[in-house]
């Protein structure tokens, strides 16, 4: 019985990216892109993960909103796909790809302006954490 319970938990943990989680990651990503598109960089900054925000401010030596405005970030459109595993997500949009992570406050963008690299190497991203 215990074995069965763990098998179920294992299956849930693997396939268990519930629709709510997928929706949460998607909404946060789209909201981030909309904020960028409308020039509302202060809101976009609030949707960044703390580490990514700190890294941006440190590199640009400016407050987040100003630093974000100076970034050459692509503008994402409609959702192509979303992959959620545990508390991490990859959101592919038309024109941009985002990585997100789940925090107590909701989903936050850990990397933006990402593009796949050849082979199995990490995506190259315009904005990311350390």
């Amino acid at each position: 019985m215990l074995l069965g319970a763990v098998a179920v938990v294992a299956a849930l943990s693997a396939c268990g990216a519930s629709q709510a989680r997928r929706d949460g990651a998607t909404e946060a990503g789209r909201f981030f892109e909309e904020s960028l598109g409308s020039g509302n960089f202060r809101v976009a900054c609030e949707l960044l993960a703390p580490e990514s925000r700190d890294q941006l401010e440190e590199e640009e030596k400016k407050p987040c909103a100003q630093a974000l405005a100076s970034q050459d970030l692509p503008r994402g459109g409609g959702v192509r796909s979303v992959d959620v595993h545990g508390r991490q997500a990859l959101l592919r949009l038309h024109g941009d790809t985002l990585f997100l992570s789940q925090f107590d406050e909701g989903w936050r963008v850990t990397a933006a302006g990402c593009a796949p690299e050849p082979g199995d190497t990490p995506y190259s991203c315009v904005l990311k954490g350390a």
Partner: peptide, 14 residues
């Protein structure tokens, strides 16, 4: 699932 969660943290596709 655990492998993919780690890959996403490392900015790799699942």
């Amino acid at each position: 699932a655990a492998f993919n969660e780690l890959r996403l943290r490392q900015l790799q596709a699942p």
